[in-house]
Design a protein around this nucleic acid. Structure first.
Lengths: 334, 334
DNA sequence: TTGAAAGCGCTAACAT
DNA sequence: ATGTTAGCGCTTTCAA
């Protein structure tokens, strides 16, 4: 049977086959009350026979809402994003909403385009899992539909809610862990200057100063450059490194391995994000876990507060992260 | 400025502000010919001022197409899927189509639901990156819009195209590589009985027999069970393992590590999929690379052949994989 | 319990 | 160059 590009059956076709009016078909198919059993049976049968599926475009157009939430992703390949999506999907399903994903491919322009696509589709709200989205694009989208950003945009525009983890607190927990292990020379190593990294850095500095120590920060552009920096770092007396994220931490682990510096024997390393790699590398990476599904669920809650309850004031929620100790950290050598 | 849940401006609002008819607005905004410069300018200005965005639902409804391709994903967190998506997005963009993602979360029922959502949205075609989707759901979807499955469904329904890599050829390449290195005791280790794994197993068996050797297969249910099987495997004289995928291979690497069996000194391990972990673990995993972006691009081509060129006969494309040698394989010990 | 009719926002064919 | 009009497929009054 070759694929027949036949016209999709409409509610009218079903009505014809069932011998009723199209409004009755609509009512029956949506399980509405006041439809006789016989009519309902004929209608269901006709719909099945024709393989009828209601047209979401027409439905959305007349109802003014689609019961769909849009998710804008910076980077599909990033498991962090993926976990947030899981939370979004869970909360959306509970509230009876479907979820549609749009992918920005780490490209600000494409992100704006995709955001526009979602808005044009009349989704009932957008979760942007990205701190890269253009502020103007966000503002424009927020004029049409509730928008919440998961992460830390440089300048959250008015009308847009945000949910983020407490970067400073997370870094603080990591430092506390290292202090507990007896480390006194803890260096913060970062490959980014975005707000998230800045927040982590501030948390690090506060915690270190709180212990009466002096902060030391190594900032580079790319993780590749870390290899060259590792040897001087260790030679300078550093016994513990706090990385701005797991990828940076893994690069440090690699460098240490190549240098013959045992981890955690001679050097402890802590990551941030608790991504999949953290549990895969050797030694297992101690890392700060963001409550990712919770971030997604919170985002949906904020969305629905606007879409359903009619809230208009902006909200910015901050969730608490949690340190996951593994084997990349150990006692400082005396 | 609180978020105003104001009614979205329509083409009529723009027409009013610009002082023209709504059809002229439509024409102008789509860049159509035969609009005076002054009118076009007034219209653009009005649209900007109002923050007007065309309503994709209405547009799709009247045009009968959405210029949107749907992608159905089994597992967002799987980087393999992600790379296929990249290929889809690339090819779709070239053809002027947008891409919408729907996520099945490794759940057959949800996959069917999401497929239905895409169809209801009148996407102009669906790429299902999954061999799990229910055959009936696929068939139903294919009655309404072109559908192509990336992977190996158990029973590809009529009316559905497929694109897959040549599993047997890939396994054959892996075996050839191991034979070149002098291995004679090569065991195929699998944690799955799906068509992809079966194909790889067949390719393995053919290649091994072709070299005058006897195939040996270890099939378990879960990767966890591999740990227990590793010691007897090595004791039995196996010098090389071909895993059905990278995760299985990584589990084997882990088991060897814990057993104190040096890789590749005493044991060589080959994965399949060349996923992200392959390049992250130590030793780096030799693996068979599926042409993932190419799979995605081919899927779009098949879709457009149906949607645009009107092809009706089913097609099943098979692309050639490629072995990526890394450091988990080495010469067999004499 | 069922049907008729209006209209969601837009495009496209047809006037002017 | 610009305006008028008829739907696209559906839900939703309102009548019968």
């Amino acid at each position: 049977m070759p694929h027949a590009p036949s016209r999709r059956p409409t509610i009218l076709d079903v009505a014809r086959v069932a011998g009723v009016s199209k409004s009755l078909v609509s009512l029956a198919l949506r399980g509405g009350p006041g439809v006789s059993e016989s009519a309902r049976a004929r209608i269901t049968a006709a719909a099945d026979q024709l393989g009828y599926r209601s047209n979401a475009l027409a439905r959305g157009l007349v109802q003014g809402r689609t019961m769909l939430l849009g998710v804008l992703l910076t980077d599909l390949a990033n498991p962090y994003h993926t976990d947030v999506v899981a939370g979004v999907e869970e909360a959306a399903a509970e509230a009876g909403f479907g979820v549609l994903l749009a992918h920005g491919r780490r490209d600000a322009e494409r992100l704006a385009t995709q955001l526009g696509t979602l808005v044009e589709l009349n989704v009932d709200g957008v979760v942007a899992i990205s701190s890269w989205v253009d502020g103007d694009a966000l503002r424009a989208a927020a004029r049409r539909t509730p928008v919440v950003v998961v992460g830390r945009p440089e300048h959250p525009p008015e009308g847009v809610d945000t949910v983020a983890n407490d970067d400073a607190a997370g870094a603080g927990q990591a430092v506390a862990h290292l202090l507990d292990l007896g480390h006194r020379e803890i260096v913060f190593v970062t490959t980014s200057r975005r707000p998230a990294a800045q927040g982590r850095r501030r948390g690090y500095e506060t915690a270190v100063r709180g212990a009466g120590l002096t902060p030391r920060v190594l900032a580079v552009e790319h993780a590749d450059q870390l290899h060259a920096h590792a040897a001087p770092l260790v030679a300078s007396g550093a016994t513990a490194l706090l990385a701005n994220n797991d990828l940076t931490a893994v690069a440090l682990l690699d460098a240490a391995h190549d240098l013959g510096v045992p981890v955690p024997g001679r050097l402890s390393v802590v990551g941030y994000d608790n991504s999949t790699v953290a549990a895969l590398v050797r030694p297992r990476l101690t890392s700060v876990d963001q409550p990712r599904p919770e971030l997604g669920r919170t985002a949906v809650r904020l969305l629905l507060e606007r879409a359903v309850d009619g809230r208009t004031a902006d909200r910015h929620e901050v969730l608490r992260p949690r340190l996951v100790p593994r084997t990349s950290t150990g006692p400082a050598r005396p």
